[in-house]
Simulated assay, not measured.
Amino acid sequence: MLGSADVRRLVAALELRPTKTLGQNFVIDPNTVRRIVRVAEVEPSDVVVEVGPGLGSLTLALLPAAGHVVAVEVDTTLANALPSTVASYAPALSGRLDVVRADALELGELPGRAPTALVANLPYNVAVPVLLHMLETFPALDRALVMVQKEVAERLAAPPGSRVYGVPSVKAAWYATVTYAGSVSRTVFWPVPNVDSGLVLLRRRTPPKGVDRTAVFQVIEAAFAQRRKTLRAALSGWAGSAAAAEELLVASGIDPRARGEQLSVDDFARLATHFSE
Rank of each mutant, 00 (worst) to 15 (best):
Q218T: 07
Q218S: 15
V219W: 05
V219Q: 07
V219H: 06
I220T: 06
I220K: 02
E221H: 08
A223I: 05
A223R: 10
F224M: 12
F224R: 00
A225H: 07
Q226A: 14
Q226I: 09
Q226G: 03
R227W: 07
R227H: 06
R227I: 05
R228I: 01
R228T: 10
K229R: 14
K229C: 11
T230D: 09
T230H: 01
T230P: 12
L231G: 04
L231D: 02
L231R: 00
R232E: 02
R232L: 05
R232I: 02
A233S: 15
A234N: 07
A234I: 02
A234K: 05
L235S: 07
W238E: 00
A239Q: 09
A239N: 08
A239H: 10
A239E: 03
A239T: 01
G240S: 08
G240V: 09
S241K: 01
S241Y: 07
A242I: 06
A242M: 06
A242L: 05
A243T: 10
A243K: 12
A244H: 14
A245T: 07
A245V: 00
E246F: 10
E246V: 13
E246A: 15
E246K: 14
E246T: 15
E247G: 00
E247C: 03
E247W: 08
L249R: 06
L249W: 09
V250S: 14
V250L: 14
A251Y: 13
A251G: 15
A251V: 13
A251L: 13
S252I: 11
G253I: 12
G253N: 13
G253M: 14
G253Q: 13
I254C: 05
I254S: 11
I254D: 09
I254Q: 02
D255K: 01
D255E: 13
D255A: 08
P256E: 11
P256T: 00
P256Q: 13
P256H: 12
R257F: 05
R257P: 04
R257V: 00
A258Y: 04
A258H: 08
A258K: 03
A258D: 08
A258C: 04
G260S: 09
G260L: 05
E261I: 08
E261M: 05
Q262D: 09
Q262T: 11
L263A: 11
L263F: 04
L263M: 03
L263S: 08
L263I: 02
S264W: 02
S264V: 07
V265K: 00
